[in-house]
Amino acid sequence: MNIFRLVGDMSHLLAIIILLMKMWKSRSVAGISGKSQILFAIVFTTRYLDLFTSFVSIYNTSMKVFFIGTSYVTVYFIYQHFKPTYDSNHDTFRVEFLIVPVGGLAFLVNHEFSLLEILWTFSIYLESVAILPQLFMVSKTGEAESITSHYLFALGSYRALYLLNWIYRYYFEGFFDLIAVVAGCVQTILYCDFFYLYITKVLKGKKISLPA
């Protein structure tokens, strides 16, 4: 565990907590893409099946359980508890265009042709694009609340920090995983436009609003 990995994990944890707090305090899921959140629930479920097969550490296990659990709570909030506030008209990204190609790719490009390994690979690929319905929603409505922007920034930072973690691990531990690194790069690149808006607008006290 190096500093980049730890701060990355904390950033990921913070993103999830920000999102849950936003929904709970405002009693609303406005501006949040239910489709992205369903994708994240699928990502965590397919990646952390190794909870049943291997034990790494208390830290590892509790984070995995937390990520899976909160992802289902989030989906429940959007589609049940706060359903009247869910903006489905603007959440129109076609997720099958992500799931089908990503599933095919995981089947073709993986480290080992076994069920758990293919599901893990699928999860890594899917995570890299899972935010697209959310980014699509922001661009469609042309705005994002500050709290949603903070969520997206924390969530995007997490994978960017993992990239630094992988550079560190490559040099000091000889560790290198091409699938994770390529997917991590794709994931981080998808956030670049948002990072720019966040730094130039949200940090100066303005909310993100795009020209129509």
Partner: peptide
Amino acid sequence: KKDARVKDEL
């Protein structure tokens, strides 16, 4: 060993 690959990461 391959099995220990990314499994310690989240």
